[in-house]
Protein backbone atom coordinates (compact mmCIF):
# COMPACT_ATOMS: atom_id res chain seq x y z
CA UNK A 1 0.00 0.00 0.00
CA UNK A 2 2.80 2.31 0.84
CA UNK A 3 4.40 2.73 -2.49
CA UNK A 4 1.34 4.20 -4.18
CA UNK A 5 0.73 6.76 -1.52
CA UNK A 6 4.15 8.31 -1.58
CA UNK A 7 3.26 9.99 -4.83
CA UNK A 8 1.11 12.36 -2.90
CA UNK A 9 3.88 13.43 -0.60
CA UNK A 10 7.44 12.39 -1.05
CA UNK A 11 8.45 13.11 -4.58
CA UNK A 12 11.83 14.25 -3.49
CA UNK A 13 13.85 14.47 -0.34
CA UNK A 14 12.56 17.02 2.12
CA UNK A 15 14.95 19.92 2.43
CA UNK A 16 17.40 19.65 5.30
CA UNK A 17 15.93 21.29 8.36
CA UNK A 18 18.60 23.83 8.80
CA UNK A 19 16.56 26.93 9.19
CA UNK A 20 16.06 26.99 12.90
CA UNK A 21 14.66 30.43 12.61
CA UNK A 22 12.02 29.44 10.11
CA UNK A 23 11.13 26.51 12.30
CA UNK A 24 10.75 28.78 15.29
CA UNK A 25 8.65 31.28 13.41
CA UNK A 26 6.22 28.69 12.07
CA UNK A 27 6.13 26.59 15.18
CA UNK A 28 5.40 29.39 17.59
CA UNK A 29 3.05 31.26 15.30
CA UNK A 30 -0.11 29.46 16.38
CA UNK A 31 -1.65 29.99 19.77
CA UNK A 32 -2.93 26.46 20.19
CA UNK A 33 0.49 25.04 19.54
CA UNK A 34 1.97 27.28 22.14
CA UNK A 35 -0.76 26.35 24.53
CA UNK A 36 -0.11 22.65 23.90
CA UNK A 37 3.55 23.21 24.50
CA UNK A 38 2.85 24.89 27.82
CA UNK A 39 0.69 21.95 28.90
CA UNK A 40 3.44 19.53 27.99
CA UNK A 41 6.08 21.50 29.84
CA UNK A 42 3.84 21.57 32.89
CA UNK A 43 3.23 17.85 32.52
CA UNK A 44 6.95 17.16 32.51
CA UNK A 45 7.49 19.39 35.50
CA UNK A 46 4.70 17.70 37.43
CA UNK A 47 6.02 14.27 36.56
CA UNK A 48 9.56 15.11 37.58
CA UNK A 49 8.59 16.95 40.74
CA UNK A 50 5.86 14.51 41.75
CA UNK A 51 7.43 13.42 45.06
CA UNK A 52 7.83 17.05 46.13
CA UNK A 53 4.57 18.55 45.00
CA UNK A 54 2.11 15.78 45.72
CA UNK A 55 0.49 16.40 49.08
CA UNK A 56 0.25 12.74 50.12
CA UNK A 57 1.62 9.33 49.33
CA UNK A 58 -0.54 8.28 46.36
CA UNK A 59 -0.56 4.64 47.42
CA UNK A 60 -1.24 5.11 51.11
CA UNK A 61 -4.70 4.14 52.24
CA UNK A 62 -6.83 6.08 54.63
CA UNK A 63 -4.99 9.39 54.44
CA UNK A 64 -8.55 10.66 54.42
CA UNK A 65 -11.90 9.03 54.89
CA UNK A 66 -13.30 6.87 52.13
CA UNK A 67 -14.83 8.91 49.27
CA UNK A 68 -14.27 12.33 50.82
CA UNK A 69 -15.40 15.34 48.84
CA UNK A 70 -12.91 17.99 47.73
CA UNK A 71 -11.73 20.08 50.65
CA UNK A 72 -8.72 22.14 51.63
CA UNK A 73 -7.11 18.95 52.94
CA UNK A 74 -7.81 16.96 49.80
CA UNK A 75 -8.23 19.30 46.87
CA UNK A 76 -9.75 16.62 44.68
CA UNK A 77 -11.19 14.45 47.42
CA UNK A 78 -10.31 10.83 48.16
CA UNK A 79 -11.15 7.52 46.55
CA UNK A 80 -12.86 4.50 48.05
CA UNK A 81 -9.73 3.43 49.90
CA UNK A 82 -9.21 6.92 51.29
CA UNK A 83 -6.29 7.69 48.96
CA UNK A 84 -5.71 11.28 47.90
CA UNK A 85 -6.94 11.82 44.34
CA UNK A 86 -4.73 14.80 43.62
CA UNK A 87 -1.61 12.88 44.62
CA UNK A 88 -2.66 9.98 42.46
CA UNK A 89 -3.32 12.35 39.58
CA UNK A 90 0.15 13.84 39.98
CA UNK A 91 1.83 10.44 40.07
CA UNK A 92 -0.35 9.35 37.18
CA UNK A 93 1.46 11.87 34.97
CA UNK A 94 4.57 9.74 35.40
CA UNK A 95 2.73 6.65 34.27
CA UNK A 96 1.23 8.47 31.31
CA UNK A 97 4.60 9.78 30.14
CA UNK A 98 6.30 6.47 30.77
CA UNK A 99 3.70 4.50 28.83
CA UNK A 100 3.69 7.05 26.03
CA UNK A 101 7.40 7.55 25.57
CA UNK A 102 8.58 4.01 26.13
CA UNK A 103 5.92 2.59 23.79
CA UNK A 104 6.71 5.14 21.11
CA UNK A 105 10.41 4.51 21.65
CA UNK A 106 10.17 0.75 21.32
CA UNK A 107 7.85 0.97 18.35
CA UNK A 108 10.17 3.47 16.64
CA UNK A 109 13.32 1.49 17.30
CA UNK A 110 11.75 -1.59 15.76
CA UNK A 111 9.52 -0.02 13.14
CA UNK A 112 11.85 2.54 11.57
CA UNK A 113 14.73 0.17 10.71
CA UNK A 114 12.25 -2.36 9.38
CA UNK A 115 10.71 0.29 7.17
CA UNK A 116 14.05 1.55 5.92
CA UNK A 117 15.32 -1.95 5.18
CA UNK A 118 12.12 -2.81 3.36
CA UNK A 119 12.16 0.41 1.38
CA UNK A 120 15.87 0.38 0.54
CA UNK A 121 16.44 -3.26 -0.27
CA UNK A 122 12.99 -3.80 -1.77
CA UNK A 123 12.03 -7.02 -3.45
CA UNK A 124 11.10 -10.06 -1.48
CA UNK A 125 12.21 -8.53 1.83
CA UNK A 126 9.95 -5.58 1.20
CA UNK A 127 7.01 -7.88 0.53
CA UNK A 128 7.58 -9.88 3.70
CA UNK A 129 8.13 -6.91 6.00
CA UNK A 130 5.52 -4.58 4.63
CA UNK A 131 2.82 -7.24 4.25
CA UNK A 132 3.46 -8.26 7.85
CA UNK A 133 3.02 -4.65 8.84
CA UNK A 134 -0.19 -4.46 6.83
CA UNK A 135 -1.34 -7.63 8.55
CA UNK A 136 -0.69 -6.05 11.92
CA UNK A 137 -2.66 -3.02 10.82
CA UNK A 138 -5.58 -5.28 9.98
CA UNK A 139 -5.93 -6.03 13.65
CA UNK A 140 -7.73 -3.11 15.19
CA UNK A 141 -5.15 -1.60 17.56
CA UNK A 142 -7.23 -2.32 20.63
CA UNK A 143 -7.67 -5.94 19.60
CA UNK A 144 -3.96 -6.39 19.20
CA UNK A 145 -3.27 -4.75 22.54
CA UNK A 146 -6.01 -6.78 24.16
CA UNK A 147 -4.68 -10.07 22.90
CA UNK A 148 -1.10 -9.18 23.77
CA UNK A 149 -2.03 -7.96 27.22
CA UNK A 150 -3.97 -11.18 27.72
CA UNK A 151 -0.89 -13.16 26.67
CA UNK A 152 1.46 -11.21 28.87
CA UNK A 153 -0.84 -10.44 31.77
CA UNK A 154 -1.58 -7.01 33.19
CA UNK A 155 1.11 -4.71 34.51
CA UNK A 156 2.70 -1.61 33.12
CA UNK A 157 5.47 -3.31 31.16
CA UNK A 158 2.98 -5.51 29.35
CA UNK A 159 0.70 -2.64 28.50
CA UNK A 160 3.74 -0.91 27.06
CA UNK A 161 4.72 -3.91 24.98
CA UNK A 162 1.16 -4.34 23.74
CA UNK A 163 0.86 -0.71 22.70
CA UNK A 164 4.29 -0.73 21.09
CA UNK A 165 3.57 -3.73 18.92
CA UNK A 166 0.28 -2.19 17.91
CA UNK A 167 2.02 0.99 16.73
CA UNK A 168 5.07 -0.49 14.98
CA UNK A 169 3.41 -0.71 11.54
CA UNK A 170 2.78 3.03 11.42
CA UNK A 171 6.47 3.83 11.74
CA UNK A 172 7.52 1.13 9.34
CA UNK A 173 5.13 2.41 6.70
CA UNK A 174 6.28 6.00 6.93
CA UNK A 175 9.94 5.04 7.03
CA UNK A 176 9.46 2.74 4.05
CA UNK A 177 7.65 5.44 2.12
CA UNK A 178 10.34 8.05 2.72
CA UNK A 179 13.10 5.59 1.89
CA UNK A 180 11.55 4.56 -1.39
CA UNK A 181 11.03 8.14 -2.39
CA UNK A 182 14.66 9.10 -1.88
CA UNK A 183 16.30 5.82 -2.82
CA UNK A 184 17.00 7.00 -6.36
CA UNK A 185 18.19 10.47 -5.37
CA UNK A 186 21.57 11.59 -6.63
CA UNK A 187 23.28 11.72 -3.29
CA UNK A 188 22.26 8.18 -2.49
CA UNK A 189 23.35 6.94 -5.90
CA UNK A 190 26.65 8.70 -5.58
CA UNK A 191 27.20 7.20 -2.16
CA UNK A 192 26.55 3.81 -3.69
CA UNK A 193 28.95 4.53 -6.50
CA UNK A 194 31.60 5.49 -3.99
CA UNK A 195 31.24 2.04 -2.51
CA UNK A 196 29.49 2.84 0.71
CA UNK A 197 27.92 -0.22 2.26
CA UNK A 198 24.12 -0.52 2.30
CA UNK A 199 24.12 -0.39 6.07
CA UNK A 200 26.07 2.86 6.07
CA UNK A 201 23.81 4.45 3.47
CA UNK A 202 20.70 3.46 5.33
CA UNK A 203 22.08 4.70 8.61
CA UNK A 204 23.80 7.86 7.44
CA UNK A 205 21.83 9.09 4.51
CA UNK A 206 18.34 7.69 4.75
CA UNK A 207 17.66 7.57 8.47
CA UNK A 208 18.01 11.34 9.03
CA UNK A 209 15.55 11.99 6.23
CA UNK A 210 12.89 9.92 7.94
CA UNK A 211 13.04 12.01 11.07
CA UNK A 212 10.78 14.94 10.20
CA UNK A 213 7.68 12.87 9.37
CA UNK A 214 8.41 10.38 12.14
CA UNK A 215 8.82 13.00 14.83
CA UNK A 216 5.43 14.34 13.89
CA UNK A 217 3.93 10.85 13.86
CA UNK A 218 5.47 10.04 17.23
CA UNK A 219 4.15 13.18 18.86
CA UNK A 220 0.66 12.45 17.66
CA UNK A 221 0.98 8.79 18.66
CA UNK A 222 1.77 9.83 22.22
CA UNK A 223 -1.71 11.21 22.56
CA UNK A 224 -3.30 8.20 20.88
CA UNK A 225 -1.43 5.88 23.23
CA UNK A 226 -2.68 7.64 26.32
CA UNK A 227 -6.22 7.27 25.00
CA UNK A 228 -5.61 3.63 24.15
CA UNK A 229 -4.40 3.00 27.70
CA UNK A 230 -7.70 4.39 28.96
CA UNK A 231 -9.61 2.08 26.62
CA UNK A 232 -7.63 -0.92 27.82
CA UNK A 233 -8.34 0.01 31.40
CA UNK A 234 -12.04 0.06 30.63
CA UNK A 235 -11.83 -3.43 29.22
CA UNK A 236 -10.05 -4.60 32.33
CA UNK A 237 -6.51 -4.77 31.03
CA UNK A 238 -4.54 -1.85 32.24
CA UNK A 239 -1.80 -0.69 34.48
CA UNK A 240 -1.40 -3.00 37.42
CA UNK A 241 -2.97 -1.62 40.56
CA UNK A 242 -2.48 0.13 42.81
CA UNK A 243 -0.25 2.05 40.42
CA UNK A 244 -1.73 5.41 39.60
CA UNK A 245 -2.71 5.53 35.94
CA UNK A 246 -5.18 8.03 34.55
CA UNK A 247 -7.12 5.61 32.41
CA UNK A 248 -7.55 3.22 35.31
CA UNK A 249 -8.58 6.13 37.55
CA UNK A 250 -11.25 7.28 35.11
CA UNK A 251 -12.56 3.78 34.88
CA UNK A 252 -12.53 3.12 38.61
CA UNK A 253 -14.10 6.49 39.30
CA UNK A 254 -17.05 6.07 36.98
CA UNK A 255 -18.80 3.97 39.62
CA UNK A 256 -18.91 7.04 41.83
CA UNK A 257 -19.94 9.56 39.18
CA UNK A 258 -23.09 10.66 40.91
CA UNK A 259 -21.65 11.51 44.29
CA UNK A 260 -17.97 11.96 43.58
CA UNK A 261 -17.71 13.10 39.96
CA UNK A 262 -14.23 14.51 40.60
CA UNK A 263 -12.86 10.97 40.91
CA UNK A 264 -13.50 10.29 37.26
CA UNK A 265 -13.55 13.79 35.81
CA UNK A 266 -10.20 15.00 37.03
CA UNK A 267 -8.16 12.23 35.41
CA UNK A 268 -10.44 12.48 32.38
CA UNK A 269 -9.69 16.18 31.98
CA UNK A 270 -6.00 15.45 32.49
CA UNK A 271 -6.11 12.88 29.70
CA UNK A 272 -7.99 15.23 27.41
CA UNK A 273 -5.60 18.10 28.03
CA UNK A 274 -2.52 16.02 27.43
CA UNK A 275 -3.90 14.32 24.33
CA UNK A 276 -4.87 17.74 23.06
CA UNK A 277 -1.41 19.08 23.79
CA UNK A 278 0.36 16.26 21.99
CA UNK A 279 -1.89 16.68 18.99
CA UNK A 280 -1.38 20.41 18.79
CA UNK A 281 2.37 20.20 19.23
CA UNK A 282 2.36 17.47 16.60
CA UNK A 283 0.49 19.78 14.25
CA UNK A 284 2.92 22.57 14.96
CA UNK A 285 5.92 20.37 14.37
CA UNK A 286 4.45 19.16 11.13
CA UNK A 287 3.86 22.63 9.81
CA UNK A 288 7.27 23.76 10.94
CA UNK A 289 9.27 20.75 9.79
CA UNK A 290 7.55 19.82 6.60
CA UNK A 291 4.20 21.26 5.63
CA UNK A 292 3.88 18.78 2.79
CA UNK A 293 3.12 16.12 5.36
CA UNK A 294 -0.31 17.64 5.80
CA UNK A 295 -2.87 15.08 4.91
CA UNK A 296 -0.50 12.24 5.49
CA UNK A 297 -0.01 12.64 9.21
Amino acid sequence: MAEERNITGFEEAPPPVSEWRRFRRVFFSRGVVLFGLIILVLLFLVAVLAPWISPYDPYKMSVGKSLEHPSSQHLLGTDILGRDTLSRLIYGSRTALMVGFISVGIAGVIGIPLGIIAGYLGGFLNTIIMRTMDALLCFPMLLLALVLAAVLGGGIQNVIVALSVATIPGYARVACGVTMSIRENDYILSAQAMGSSDALIMFKHILPNTFPPLIVLMTMQLGALILAEAGLSFLGIGIEPPGAAWGAMVNAGRNYLLNNPELSFSPCIAIMLVVFAFNMVGDGLRDALDPRLRGLL
Binding site: Y59, K60, M61, I80, L81, G236, P241, P242, A252
Partner: peptide, 12 residues
Protein backbone atom coordinates in the same frame (compact mmCIF):
# COMPACT_ATOMS: atom_id res chain seq x y z
CA UNK B 1 -10.25 -6.94 38.00
CA UNK B 2 -13.33 -6.79 40.23
CA UNK B 3 -11.10 -7.30 43.26
CA UNK B 4 -8.68 -4.47 42.55
CA UNK B 5 -9.86 -2.22 45.38
CA UNK B 6 -9.75 -5.02 47.91
CA UNK B 7 -6.41 -6.19 46.55
CA UNK B 8 -4.92 -2.70 46.81
CA UNK B 9 -6.08 -2.52 50.41
CA UNK B 10 -4.65 -5.94 51.27
CA UNK B 11 -1.39 -4.92 49.63
CA UNK B 12 -1.29 -1.81 51.80
Amino acid sequence: ETGIDAGSAIKA
